[in-house]
């Protein structure tokens, strides 16, 4: 644990894997020394491109960029203490009851439903009042937080973002936000239990009958993760427990699956 400071350099050049990155960002939230160091190392890293032979951007890029930015309003600045809690919008900016009561938890690929999935089937639908997802913005680095959360933010603020909340046995919850347009999904897991050493929660996107690995959740803590891979046509998101490093195929007996609403 004391060694975690040593990750500052690797973090500054994005050389951490997803699990390490999430862990280090939690550390950053509480360690001003590391935040300062990361900031200074990012300054250093930003000089590296100067050492490369320069390329000019293709002409088409400028047009595309300028056309695209015209479609988006810049986000408001963060205003410190009373910053409005970022509300994950459901359909049209309502903070409210996207809270999808419970989605059926079904085993992947219609297999038998053993242990965890069976347990998950017991899931009670909590009447979740509102899907206000907490401080997604400010995690990690105070001052300039959004860099680290940017992919997440972009999904959460996408005009077509849809948020669904699923309750999992034992009080755990998963809040899934999908932007079909961006083709990306964000999962916020709350209260998933600790795993034995050497095991990780792996995420999956289901496309038809195929499960595609989509990253990992840091174990044991609440976490917000941008799934890797294309979510534009995914039909479900799955969470399984796998040996560290992940598995090529999901271990079905640990699967929890969250069906996504159609586009």
């Amino acid at each position: 644990m004391s060694d975690i400071h040593a990750l500052s350099g690797a973090y500054a050049v994005d050389a951490l894997d997803d699990v390490e990155r999430a862990g280090f960002e939690r550390h950053l939230a509480t360690c001003p020394t590391c935040r300062d160091e990361v900031a200074s190392l990012e300054e250093a890293a930003s000089l590296l491109i100067e050492s490369a032979s320069p390329l000019s951007a293709p002409d088409t890029l400028r047009e595309r960029v300028m056309a695209e930015i015209a479609l988006f309003r810049p986000l408001p600045p963060l205003t410190g203490q009373a910053a409005p809690a970022p509300v994950v919008r459901g359909d049209h900016g309502h903070a409210a009851p996207e809270a999808r009561d419970l989605a059926p938890v079904v085993p992947l690929r219609r297999r038998r439903v053993p242990a965890l999935a069976a347990a998950a089937a017991v899931v009670a639908a909590l009447g979740l009042g509102a899907t206000v997802v907490q401080p997604l913005v400010d995690r990690g680095r105070d001052g300039q937080p959004v860099i680290t959360e940017s992919g997440v933010q972009r999904v959460l603020q996408a005009p077509d973002a849809r948020t669904q909340t699923y309750t999992i046995k034992g009080g755990a919850r998963a809040v899934v936000t999908v932007s079909r347009e961006l083709g990306q999904a964000v999962l916020r897991a709350e209260g998933l239990g600790d795993l034995p050493p050497g095991m990780v929660y792996e995420l999956w996107l289901q496309h038809d009958e195929r499960m595609v690995a989509a990253g990992f959740l840091p174990a044991g803590a609440d976490a917000t993760v941008l799934l890797t891979g294309d979510a534009s046509t995914a039909t479900a998101i799955g969470i399984t427990t796998e040996p560290e490093g992940g598995s090529p195929q999901p271990s079905l007996d640990t699967a929890i699956r969250f069906p996504l609403t159609k586009v």
Partner: peptide, 27 residues
Amino acid sequence: LEIWRMAGRFDPERGSPLAWMLTIVHR
């Protein structure tokens, strides 16, 4: 696009604009 959307959250106290932008690109 992200630089555009996040521009209001750039904080000069915390770093140079160059590093802020290139950090976004690199990520």
